[in-house]
Design a protein around this nucleic acid. Structure first.
Lengths: 212, 212, 212, 212
DNA sequence: TATGAATGAGTCTTCATTCAT
DNA sequence: GATGAATGAAGACTCATTCAT
């Protein structure tokens, strides 16, 4: 499959280091604003003020408001993917998957602001940025699905639908960011992880006893 | 627990029947617009035009733009709750839950437009309307959790965390609306339901064999 | 030849009389501003202030800044065409042409503001409005050319190129508006008309003596 | 009459040769842009990019955007004047005028881009630059008027108003640049020249037969 | 001489809401 | 109960120009 090249955000400034530095300041200021008041209710002026820039300076580093959202989301999603890819592939698919799930949950927890933004504001993204986001998410799911497939091949796991299973795991992680209001108070992140691991491994391991 | 009274949308028109009739026309026109282009990108003018009203008329039946969103979401969510409450409580918790899950998935499928709106635009709701939405969702989860608890009490189910389990089921349903782009093409609704039932009942029934 | 339908300026207001009245106030205020400071240097805010409206009100009657320019130009050009069409067709082509030229010069004098705008700002017009302007100008030229052709057919005029001749007459008229700085001081409008009539009829009448 | 000294465009660079060379590159790049999209719709950034300079470099050779327009227009108009002045003064005023008209038409054809700019954008010029342009145009008209006056004095031409006549000739030339859309398709430049010569000499020569 | 990041006032346009009729 | 013209603050984005390096 030929993937479209990942979309780039245009900058009027040539110096790549400077661009990276400035954009980092930009995203961390804007992320907070977007999360607090949403993309549409945040004005470009507020963003500039939050970073401490003038309006014109802002537009040296982006070309439209949507770019800011894209930068925030991409930064988080890429970090999340990298964490997942960094999980070492152990001989045991089960142990690998356990580690991957824990990593995923923790990353989503760290990036919960961005994850919420993805669900709330993805329709504000430019089409190519939305497509990029979808591909990234499919990539993450794919990493999990591959571990599951390996476990099935190795006889560790029952022959479940790996894609659907991976989808469920991703949604478990995302819902920690999306539904904190419904979970927080009852669960800490570790509680939540432990609880969900039970539901993940119970249907996966043949004997019915979850890995502990 | 004392619940806040459900918020009402103020109307300048006295005749309750007329109000209901007009609002029904309003929501069905607006739902489509909101889904297609989002709440913020849809102007109140477009909505009026879509229903065939003048601007002034619109404001006889609502008091602000956010009311329209609330009306749409509440209508769908209430319908969804009613469907779930209508599922008959059979002696077997397992059969009851099966039926409830199927009902939930099908309702979410029918109301997928509104479900997407809930995730995308819930921050555009007025605070009291958002709170109402959350309570409604907790109510749905509670219905499922109660069936699960009954199953546990009756010895049909393993002693899982009923709330967390119910939460997972709700997210499975919602993700059918939220992630159609990632599932459609691989699954029909029935495929999806069948696949997820496997994952639902496998960890629930003691022997490890899913109900079929 | 099939002409494109004349472009209409969209208005959000239904009442046609009101639209006409408001637009008349609009154009007379904007004409002066555009003439004094040019289209680009005149802000839409200034226009609104000059008519005594709020910004929103302005956009009830036009849909973009370019519409204002178009309204001004079309109003003048249409008036000019009507004046020319109103010149009675006498038996003598020569007398008819004399009258038409005088009418044209006087109309251009009256509408000199708009004529200057046409030359200066025509590139600011929307493409369809520019095309409309060109057609209108060709129409005016055509009226003169037809009289000339009739004179040739009737043996009153020498067999000149009627289109080119009409073009020259139109440019004589327009240059009264365009080059006042180069003519005024030396010529009054009547002087200018008398002088140009000499140059118009000298090459036209066979014997060489201009009509007086 | 004492003329104001011709306005100079200020440059921060001392080396006169370098300035001339750079400005030549500047005007040829900007002329095209201005003609294609107009003065106001062309940004100083686009101009810099078209010449291949940085923003700062541009401002070493001009002091404001209007200077660029002035440089373009003055360059063309001066060339046009020089062409006209280079026409040899033959004994026959008629032959001299013929040659001058042909030269004028051809120069305007070559410089039609700049001529259009003069009419469209002259109001964007700084006042002193506009005045300079007017003086230049009056100078051109004066050259023609002088030939006509000589012809009258020598008894070759009828006693017409030389200034008005010269004005008409200039407008004939300019309208080739301004109204190509209305003439092109019917006339080549040579056709147009031949046709207009007829109208020029017919009222000028006593007997009524045009010079051929 | 050349660079290029920074400035900040300014641009056109939109839109939720009101109220006299 | 219905109308629809009017409001005016707010929106995103541009751009000629400068100045420290």
């Amino acid at each position: 499959m030929v993937l479209a090249p990942r979309p780039r955000v245009h900058s009027r400034v040539a110096n790549a280091e400077l661009v990276a530095e400035r954009r980092s300041a930009l995203t961390s200021a804007a992320r907070e604003l977007f999360l607090r008041q949403g993309f549409h209710k945040t004005s470009i002026r507020e963003i500039a003020a939050a970073v401490g820039w003038q309006m014109g300076t802002l537009y040296l580093y982006i070309s439209c408001k949507e770019d800011v959202l894209h930068l925030i989301i991409r930064e988080s999603m890429d970090g999340l993917t990298r964490s997942l890819e960094a999980v070492p592939q152990q001989a045991s698919a089960l142990l690998t998957l356990r580690e991957a799930v824990a990593t995923l949950f923790r990353s989503v927890h760290d990036e919960r602001a961005a994850v919420k933004l993805c669900y709330r504001e993805s329709d504000s993204l430019l089409p190519e940025h939305l497509e990029d986001l979808k591909q990234t998410e499919l990539g993450e799911r794919g990493i999990l699905a591959n571990v599951i497939r390996r476990g099935i091949d190795q006889g560790e796991f029952r022959a479940v639908d790996a894609d659907l299973f991976a989808h469920n795991i991703v949604m478990m992680a995302h819902s920690w960011a999306l539904k904190r209001w419904a979970l927080r108070g009852k669960f800490s992140l570790d509680d939540y992880l432990a609880g969900q691991l039970e539901f993940i491994f119970r249907p996966l391991v043949a004997s019915g006893q979850a890995a502990s």
